[in-house]
């Protein structure tokens, strides 16, 4: 497993304590999991995705990622409606291991825009990992 200093955590993204990242694109938010999360989980073998059109509250489980011997729930960092899912993950969930930022999981239309700004910065997220 990676040491903290080996982790790739882009400065322009926002983070959640549940190890998701979020990026604003116009009026939508793109969501994925962090390098730390993919590293902890190991080789991802299956991604269970929500249905497009379904809505979740902030912090609610919207899918799961499975490795050979672990299951990890993924939680939505902001409330909203799922407007797109990354279909490529269905056949190749390992893409997340290869690049967790290029390979996003869902796109959300947020229902409470202010939640995004309250997510963690790179530094704040790093702090949760060291603490």
């Amino acid at each position: 497993m990676k040491e903290l200093e080996e982790l790739n955590l882009p400065g322009e993204l926002m983070y959640s304590k549940d190890h998701e990242w979020a990026k604003k694109e116009d009026d939508t938010i793109v969501i994925g999991i962090t390098d730390y999360a993919q590293d902890q989980l190991g080789d991802i073998v299956f991604a269970e995705m929500p249905e497009v059109g379904s809505s979740f509250e902030q912090g609610e489980e919207f899918g799961t990622l499975e490795s050979v011997k672990a299951v990890s729930e993924i939680y939505l960092p902001v409330s909203g409606e799922i407007i797109a899912i990354n279909d490529a993950l269905e056949d190749e969930p390992e893409l997340i291991n290869e690049d967790p930022y290029e390979n996003w999981i869902v796109v959300v239309r947020p229902s409470k825009e202010e939640q995004f700004d309250k997510l963690l910065s790179r530094e704040e997220y790093l702090e949760t990992l060291t603490g």
Binding site: F46, E66, S67, V68, K69, A70, V71
Partner: peptide, 9 residues
Amino acid sequence: TLSTREQHI
């Protein structure tokens, strides 16, 4: 295989 469905995980 597919053990993630099972009780031990």
